[in-house]
Write a protein that binds this DNA or RNA. Sequence first.
DNA 1: TTTAAATAGTTGACAAATATAACTAATATA
DNA 2: TATATTAGTTATATTTGTCAACTATTTAAA
Lengths: 169, 169
Amino acid sequence: MQVTEKMNVPVGTKALIMSKRYYGVLSKCLEDLEVERYYSVLYFLAENDGCTQQHICNNLAVDKTAMVKVIDYLIKAGYIDRNVNPDDRREHFIVLTKKGTKHTEEIVGAFKSIDDKIFADISKTEKDIFIKVLCRLTSNLEILPANDLFFNYKKTARKKKKKSNVAKL
Amino acid sequence: MQVTEKMNVPVGTKALIMSKRYYGVLSKCLEDLEVERYYSVLYFLAENDGCTQQHICNNLAVDKTAMVKVIDYLIKAGYIDRNVNPDDRREHFIVLTKKGTKHTEEIVGAFKSIDDKIFADISKTEKDIFIKVLCRLTSNLEILPANDLFFNYKKTARKKKKKSNVAKL
DNA sequence: TTTAAATAGTTGACAAATATAACTAATATA
DNA sequence: TATATTAGTTATATTTGTCAACTATTTAAA
């Protein structure tokens, strides 16, 4: 049952479909873990252990109010801790626990394994171009006017009701 | 406030972040329309007017139960109609109304305009490679085991509870 | 040719994600 | 010092996605 073969769809839609399949495969790979969501946050922490919540939000394009719940969930699972930064007590450092570190290794491995598999029949050159263009498209999108999810603008002087920007459909 | 600069994230995560931004920009472009969701379904219908619900599901990787609500929403807005196929009365043809056709032109224009803008500083060669690789990655993902969202397998002999495959994080 | 299986679509209950405003606390700036 | 900004939290409402069970119809098998 193939999907998205020869069809002419906008690049944002294509990317969304790809990422949905990607996360479907990922969650199958990791279905034995007790944590069943937010793998990309753990992946990010593997390389950015001890960063702040806001830093995760900025890099993964998640709203800070949503991030609170993500962090709560991962703390409850015993994967991470939340520590106040003594030098700026507004900030909370997010650090992997021993348990979290262990499972995050498996998660990182699963991500990398999927990447290896799906890039297996693509040349290094084309892969590099793909990644470069994907990053460029993202940064080009950043300078276009958007509804302001992901950015924690101050909420003053808000006039109109917002529309959902859920990356679905 | 830049995001996703030099970071090392898996390709599925990168694609998700890009698509989130993409839809944020799109919804800003189209905020004057009364319909504020499901633009990609209308885009798809612009080229596949009269197809079945299942056909949309297959191509946009959306579960059929979710599609029912999408179609209901667009019917309520007066953009589409749902007509039973007389030759196979299980199938419902989805057709754009006059009103839907008119607004869908604007939606298609908005998608194309965004694509034009974000690819403006990327060569034709690199763009072609990007699109080709994106399609290839998607099809490579299809042959990997995944949790079976998007696919309407028969639900018999189901043993374990499913995990969410929401393309979020 | 009757029975079984598969397909297209629907429903309803529930879980998860998102939007939004209002809030505390801490720090930076004018 | 007063003001604004930043990091994070809470609460509420809405939207969206999940999933099992369902109807109706068509196809395939015995």
